[in-house]
Amino acid sequence: MKHILVIDDAATVRLYHRGILENAGYSVDEAINGIEALEKALVKPYDLFIVDVNMPKLDGYGFLKEFRRQDDALQSPAIMVTTEASGSDKQLGYMSGANLYITKPIKPNELVNYARLLLGETL
């Protein structure tokens, strides 16, 4: 079973993403900000990250930059799911290490399809 870490400071968003991804057959953990995500990612390997941008303590860009910097071998893909829709936000997301940048709100089948795409699974 593939492991996914959902990183978002909004409990409802985490619950929403968790429900969708668990229904699709994935194991899901949650983190409430980038710092907690870094701590969890250091002790457990994740196959995919679903990352919000705006979070207290360490935002999504900061998490990805730090995560990619800590260990080059940790190259699990990441989807940024955020309300930030500007071109510069997307560019920053990709520069930070995101593989996909999706603007909220996201529909369940979209999230699952993107997850499968980045996990190399058959759609």
Partner: peptide, 12 residues
């Protein structure tokens, strides 16, 4: 700000 870090720090 275009800087997400600065935005979040300001919010806090």
């Amino acid at each position: 700000s275009e800087d997400a870090g600065l935005r979040n720090e300001a919010i806090e």
